[in-house]
Design a protein around this nucleic acid. Structure first.
Length: 280
DNA sequence: ACTATGTCCTGCGAGC
DNA sequence: TGCTCGCAGGACATAG
């Protein structure tokens, strides 16, 4: 489940490998659910464009694309990895994995492949036009960036809400980029029970959560993210943050702080892990 | 305006 | 050993 730190790692890895390359041709699969923009429109839009830059917005990977030698993006390719999506840069002789839904043939002769067994991932193409149409704005993501949001704005997002704080953290329209791992991990580090109602958190608790979330995300980015199930970054290397998990998927194991067994409950249908002694 | 629930999809592991 | 079955979850549609 690639979340913000994993997507950041992958985007940086892809950028380092293919920045500046031109997309010579495109092959798209027939699994319609993978495409938010029709395959025809996407293939036509991508073909011939140059990749200016690859970066992360929320859990999305954004490719800024330009025509010819232009340095301003006239279009964007947006990749959401869903649960099991992967972006691989490979030579043509490397066998194409099962569940490959898109292949971009690049000017270097290599291929950028989008592989996604579960098909929760989504590809979209955004035409930005010549920059004069105010409706054609660059992709901004559904919510606010957790790494840069101010404490004041963070407090506003969660005040007055009647759902569990864990569910609120997962809502991408509030903060984008936080998923199940980092929701659980940040709540542990802030000492807050995941089932606690968002609107009942005190000012102090929300400040602690804001700090804890930013810290845990930054720590994870510096370790290359978590590789819990089938996430592999652009190098094919795995991240190491899972070694730092304090509660996520540690049901029944002793809390790293107090040795109380970690509990697992369901919140909004999601597995949720916490320490009953450290979190209140 | 919010919040809750069901759905999509494949791989994996438990259980027989 | 080999099979079935239930579960995992991010985003979105739909319902309340």
């Amino acid at each position: 489940m690639p979340e913000l730190p994993e997507v950041e790692t992958i985007a940086a890895g892809v950028n380092a490998r293919i920045q500046g390359e031109r997309i010579k041709s495109v092959e798209l699969g027939n699994k319609k659910e993978s495409f938010r923009t029709s395959a025809e429109e996407m293939a036509a839009g991508l073909t011939g464009k140059r990749i200016l830059r690859v970066y992360r917005v929320g859990k999305h990977i954004v490719f800024d694309l330009a025509e010819g030698r232009s340095k301003s993006p006239g279009a964007q390719w947006i990749v959401h990895l869903g649960m099991t999506g992967r972006l691989l840069v490979a030579s043509p002789e490397v066998p194409v994995p099962l569940h490959t839904h898109a292949v971009l043939h690049l000017s270097s002769g290599r291929e950028l492949r989008f592989v996604d067994p579960r098909r929760f991932g989504r590809l979209s193409f955004l035409d930005l036009g010549d920059g004069r149409d105010s409706k054609k704005v660059p992709f901004q993501g559904p919510g606010r960036e957790p790494l840069t949001i101010s404490t004041e704005d963070f407090l506003k997002l969660f005040r007055g809400r009647k759902l569990p704080i864990k569910a609120a953290l997962l809502n991408q329209k509030l903060l984008h980029g936080v998923g199940n791992i980092y929701a659980d991990e940040s709540l542990f580090r802030a000492g807050i029970r995941p089932a606690k109602i968002s609107g009942k958190l005190t000012h102090v608790e929300l400040e602690r959560l804001h700090k804890a979330l930013q810290k845990v995300l930054q720590e994870a980015i510096s370790l290359g993210g978590s590789s819990v199930s089938d996430y592999v970054d652009a190098d094919g290397a795995k991240g190491f943050f899972q070694l730092e998990h304090r509660v996520y998927l540690r049901t029944g194991l002793p809390c790293r702080a107090c040795e109380t067994p970690i509990k697992r409950i369901l919140i909004g249908g999601r597995g949720t892990h916490y320490c009953p002694k450290c979190q209140h």
